[in-house]
Design a binder for these strands. Sequence first.
DNA 1: CACCGATAGTGATGTAGGTCACACGATCGC
DNA 2: GCGATCGTGTGACCTACATCACTATCGGTG
Lengths: 195, 195
Amino acid sequence: MPAFRMNAKAILQSHIAKTTSLSDDEFDYFFSHFKPQSYKKGQTIIFPGDAVEYEYFVLDGCLKSFYQTDQGKMFILQFAMPTWWASDYEALYNGTRATTHVDCITASEVLCLSSADREKLCREVHAIEFFFRWRTNRGYVAAQKRLLSFMHHDARQRYEEVLRLYPQLYNVVPKQLIAAYLGVSRETLSRLYQP
Amino acid sequence: MPAFRMNAKAILQSHIAKTTSLSDDEFDYFFSHFKPQSYKKGQTIIFPGDAVEYEYFVLDGCLKSFYQTDQGKMFILQFAMPTWWASDYEALYNGTRATTHVDCITASEVLCLSSADREKLCREVHAIEFFFRWRTNRGYVAAQKRLLSFMHHDARQRYEEVLRLYPQLYNVVPKQLIAAYLGVSRETLSRLYQP
DNA sequence: CACCGATAGTGATGTAGGTCACACGATCGC
DNA sequence: GCGATCGTGTGACCTACATCACTATCGGTG
């Protein structure tokens, strides 16, 4: 059994413990609602049009969530490296159909938590509700900063910012996906790092 | 005493009630932590560099939060119309200094809630923590959608999207501020609606 | 009432980045 | 071991938008 499977519980626990105090019993209860899952490289977890039931906590590998136009152009909303979370949150929170894809950049191991279980856990354990509030607060602030970055930085500055914020991505993620995250063409990105 | 002052409590209560069930006693307790405040047109509520203690629930008027470059270029992160919330959330959540401004587009009436009181209320009343989690979830999803809009729509499409999403803004907010929200120059915006 | 600041329209010109086309090396499946 | 596919670089050209400069209008205030 691979390391991340054996350690799934420890990985999630130390992730939670950074912000939230749960007793061992509370954490055991929390953890019992997660379902481990393996995906192959390139496998799609959420398709547009799907009913979205789960969010995914990444143990190993790397996911991306993205929107795709009719012409096949891809815009990446988020990468998800180990200890990050991913889903189509608009669909998950509103109970609507997915408008984005979530798929695997590399083979990945995740823990799945259903929206129903998340809400149940939040109702039952106040500290868990705190954790999810805190987590979204972080995501919200990060999204605002990325918006600002779109508004007042050019492609090169945004590229350098991404490398600075997420150096792990550089070795794992093909450049054309970085370009799709930055909102520029791969050709433009390729021209940024030479002159 | 103006209407929004008399009705402040009712406005906040009906805002909360859309998502969260609070007993009258719980709501009274919640409301007792808010401090009413009036601002004049053009007045600044948060300056960059400030320690940020409060977030603001708008009863009447219109606020904007924005980042300003050294050369004076302005990028608007958010407008806040009645029943919307505003602050420098990065500073508020992290306890760091403000990097953005918050000021009044028109004379405004707000209710101020300190971060310390928010956290206290969230600890004491589970339903209040639910409310704030829910609120940030919405904000997060909205920010993601705006990010996508930046990536795959041009200026005209973003303009039409804003008018569709926030028709109230059209009558209240000068076009150059809409431009600063869209991330285009006021000249470009002006050229969009004629050819 | 006359002036001023804020807001908005418009022309001329520059440029970052998109698009299309093609070439090249690295991987991967058979 | 070989062809197909993927990721990447690069050249030629085009377009959406920025910038600067000027003008016009309007609401408020001495």
